[in-house]
Amino acid sequence: MHKFKELEIWKQSKLFCSDIYNLTSSFPDHEKFGLTNQLRRASVSIPSNIAEGTSRSSNKEFCRFLEIALGSCYEVETQLLISYDLGFIKPESLEELNLKINAVIKMITRFKSTLIQPDKSEF
């Protein structure tokens, strides 16, 4: 069992979530229940699923929650691109957030690979 507060992937994804909240606070009011809500929910899902996965009894179960967190990363990435297309995000903000979300994606992927052990019964 892992202590989620000690995991760098959890720390970085939590900071990224704060970045998303700060960014979306400047979105138009008519997007409150649209992209603002979607981006916030997807970004909250990333550290939340990492934390929930740490409570599971096996690495296989934990990996499933890391996969869900990765899915949320890709949701956020897509929603940021749509927000940019609609003029809600400046190019430099998009670039900065893309760098951050891609770093989180790489961290989750690397960490997940350390949890997966080959099945010794196959040998």
Rank of each mutant, 00 (worst) to 15 (best):
F33A: 09
V44D: 13
E6S: 05
F65T: 11
T78S: 15
Q38H: 04
N98G: 07
C63Y: 10
K32S: 11
G87T: 12
L81R: 13
N22I: 07
K100R: 11
S18E: 13
K90P: 00
L81P: 04
S58K: 04
S18P: 04
F16W: 04
S43K: 02
G87K: 13
A51T: 08
E6R: 01
S48C: 13
S26W: 09
S55C: 09
S13P: 08
K90S: 06
G87H: 15
S72N: 05
G34M: 12
Q12D: 13
E67Q: 09
L115R: 08
T78Y: 11
I116L: 15
E6P: 07
Q38P: 07
E96D: 13
E6Q: 12
H2M: 06
F65N: 09
N59W: 02
T114H: 13
S55A: 12
R110F: 12
S93K: 14
I68S: 02
G71N: 04
K60W: 10
W10P: 05
S121Q: 15
L70Y: 04
L99A: 10
E67C: 09
I20S: 00
Q12Y: 08
Y84E: 06
S83T: 13
G71W: 01
W10S: 11
I68D: 03
Q79I: 03
P47H: 00
V76G: 09
N102T: 10
L80V: 07
F88V: 09
Y84G: 12
N37S: 15
G87Q: 10
F27H: 03
F123A: 14
K3D: 10
L23N: 07
K100F: 12
